[in-house]
């Protein structure tokens, strides 16, 4: 565990909690892509099946349980408790365009052709693109609430910090996982445009709105 890994995990946790609190406090999931949230729930579920097969540490197990629990709580908010506020008309990204290629790729490029390993690989690939429905929704409506941009910032920052973690681990532990690294790079690159807008607008007190 190095500082990049820990701050990455905490940043991920912050993102998830910010989103839950935003929905809870405003009693609304307006501007949130339910489709991205479904994809994140699928990501956590398929990746953390090893909760049933192996124990790594109390930290590892608790974080996995918290991530999964929060993902399903978010889904419950969006599709049940605050369903009336969910803006499905703008959440029109076709997720099958992500699921089919990602599913195919996880069968073709993986570390080991076994069910758990393929599901882990699938989750890594899917996570890298799971935010696209949310970014698509923002580009359609042309704006995002500031609290939603904080959520996106921490969610993007988390994988960027993991990239530094992987550089660290490569130099100091001889560890590298090409699948995670390439997917993590793709994931971080997808946020770059958003990071630019966040720094130049939101951090200067302006609302994130895109030119028409």
């Amino acid at each position: 565990m190095n500082v990049f890994r820990l701050t990455g995990d905490l940043s991920h946790l912050a993102a998830i909690i910010i989103l839950l609190l935003k929905i809870w406090k405003t009693r609304s999931c307006a501007g949130i892509s339910g489709k991205s949230q479904i994809l994140f729930a699928v990501v956590f579920t398929s990746r953390y099946l090893d909760l049933l097969t192996s124990f790594i540490s109390l930290y590892n197990t608790s974080m996995k349980v918290i991530y999964i629990g929060c993902a399903y709580a978010t889904l419950y908010f969006v599709y049940m408790k605050f369903k009336a506020t969910y803006d499905g008309n703008h959440d029109t990204f076709r997720v099958e365009f992500l699921l089919v290629p990602v599913g195919g790729l996880s069968f073709l490029v993986n570390h080991d052709f076994s069910p758990l390993e393929i599901l882990w690989t699938f989750s890594i690939y899917l996570e890298s693109v799971a935010i696209l429905p949310q970014l698509f929704m923002i580009s359609k409506t042309g704006e995002a609430e500031t609290i939603t941009t904080h959520y996106l910032f921490f969610l993007g920052l988390y994988r960027a910090l993991y990239l530094f973690n992987w550089i660290w681990r490569f130099y100091f532990e001889g560890f590298f996982d090409m699948i995670a690294i390439v997917a993590g790079l793709v994931q971080t690159i997808l946020y770059c445009d958003f990071f630019y807008l966040y720094i130049t607008k939101v951090l200067k007190g302006k609302k994130l709105s895109l030119p028409a």
Partner: peptide
Amino acid sequence: DIQINPKDEL
């Protein structure tokens, strides 16, 4: 030597 892919990350 290089160790690949233990699942200790989240």
